[in-house]
C-alpha cells in the first residue's frame, strides 16, 4: 500500500481561509519611545505603548532607568514597554545574580503603569538568545496573573529561526524596518500576499514611518515606530499606509 505522505498544513493556510477581500481592520498601536510625546491626537481605537524603562546589561552589572520624557495622552496607555540591551563594550557575564537583578529591574519598569500588556524590546545576538529567553521566562513568572506578554522580534527571527518557539509570550511583533539583508526578499513576499514563516508571528507586526512598505498582512495589531516625536501628520500618513494593505 502506498504510504500516506506527511503533510504540514501551515497556519498560513488557515489564515488564508479568511475572506481575502474583506480583511479585518488592523489595530494600531503608537510606540511612545524615549522622547517627549504628545499623543492626545490619537483616537480611542488607537492604543499607546509607552516605554517606561531602559535596562542595559553591562558585564556582570546593569544600568537601569525609567522614562525621562513626558508622554501626554488622554487615556492610560494600554502597554508598557521596557527596552533592554547589552553593552558591547563590556563582555556579558550572565550569572544567576545578574539574571535576578535584570529580571527585577524589568519587572519594576514593566509594572510602573497598570496595564494588561507588557512588551519587551531586547536586542540580542545569536549567542545571546538564551539571555532573552531567560528574561522572558522570569518576567512571565513575575507579572500579575492575566497580564499579556509581548516581545519585539527581528523580522528574520520570524522567518528563519526556530528558537522563538520557546519564547513564553502571547505576542511576537516582527519589525519590518531596519531589516537585514534578507529584508528585501521578505518585503517582496509580504507585498505579494505572503506571510511570516513562523505562525506565532502572524498576530502583530511593526512598521516605521521612515521605512514604508508596500503591503503587509492586514488585520493584525500594527505597532507604529517613529524615529522622532509623533505628529498628527506622521500618524495619519502611517495610518493611511496600513489601511492600504488590502
Amino acid at each position: 500500500m502506498r504510504a500516506r505522505l506527511p503533510f504540514l498544513l501551515s497556519a498560513a493556510a488557515l489564515v488564508a481561509c479568511a475572506p481575502r477581500d474583506q480583511p479585518a481592520a488592523s489595530g494600531l498601536i503608537l510606540w511612545a519611545w524615549e522622547r517627549p510625546e504628545d499623543l492626545r491626537f490619537a483616537d480611542e481605537a488607537t492604543e499607546v505603548a509607552v516605554q517606561t524603562g531602559f535596562v542595559e546589561i553591562a558585564g556582570d552589572g546593569l544600568q537601569a532607568r525609567g522614562r525621562r520624557f513626558p508622554l501626554k495622552v488622554d487615556r492610560t496607555p494600554a502597554i508598557t514597554l521596557v527596552h533592554v540591551q547589552i553593552d558591547r563594550a563590556r563582555p556579558l557575564v550572565w550569572t544567576p545574580a545578574l539574571r535576578a537583578q535584570v529580571g527585577a529591574a524589568i519587572l519594576h519598569f514593566a509594572t510602573a503603569v497598570p496595564v494588561r500588556r507588557v512588551q519587551i524590546d531586547f536586542e540580542t545576538r545569536m549567542s545571546e538568545r538564551q539571555v532573552l529567553l531567560d528574561v522572558l521566562h522570569d518576567l512571565r513568572r513575575g507579572l500579575p496573573h492575566g497580564t499579556l506578554l509581548s516581545m519585539t522580534a527581528l523580522a528574520s527571527w520570524c522567518d528563519t529561526e526556530r528558537w522563538l518557539d520557546q519564547a513564553p509570550v502571547d505576542e511576537i511583533v516582527p519589525m519590518l524596518f531596519r531589516m537585514q539583508q534578507s529584508g528585501e526578499a521578505l518585503r517582496n513576499r509580504l507585498a505579494a500576499g505572503g506571510d511570516f514563516r513562523n505562525p506565532r508571528c502572524r498576530a502583530a507586526l511593526a512598521v516605521a514611518t521612515d521605512s514604508p512598505i508596500v503591503r503587509a498582512p492586514p488585520g493584525r495589531r500594527v505597532y507604529l515606530f517613529n524615529p522622532r516625536s509623533w505628529t498628527t501628520q506622521d500618524f495619519e500618513t502611517a495610518r493611511r499606509q496600513v489601511e492600504s494593505w488590502r
Binding site: P36, H83, Q85, L154, M175, F225, R228
Partner: peptide, 17 residues
C-alpha cells in the same frame, strides 16, 4: 547631564545589521 539630553534618535530593537 540631563540638561544636555536631547530627544535624540530612538533606539529600536535589533539595531542595524
Amino acid at each position: 547631564v540631563l540638561a544636555g539630553m536631547g530627544a535624540g534618535a530612538a533606539l529600536a530593537s535589533g539595531g542595524p545589521p
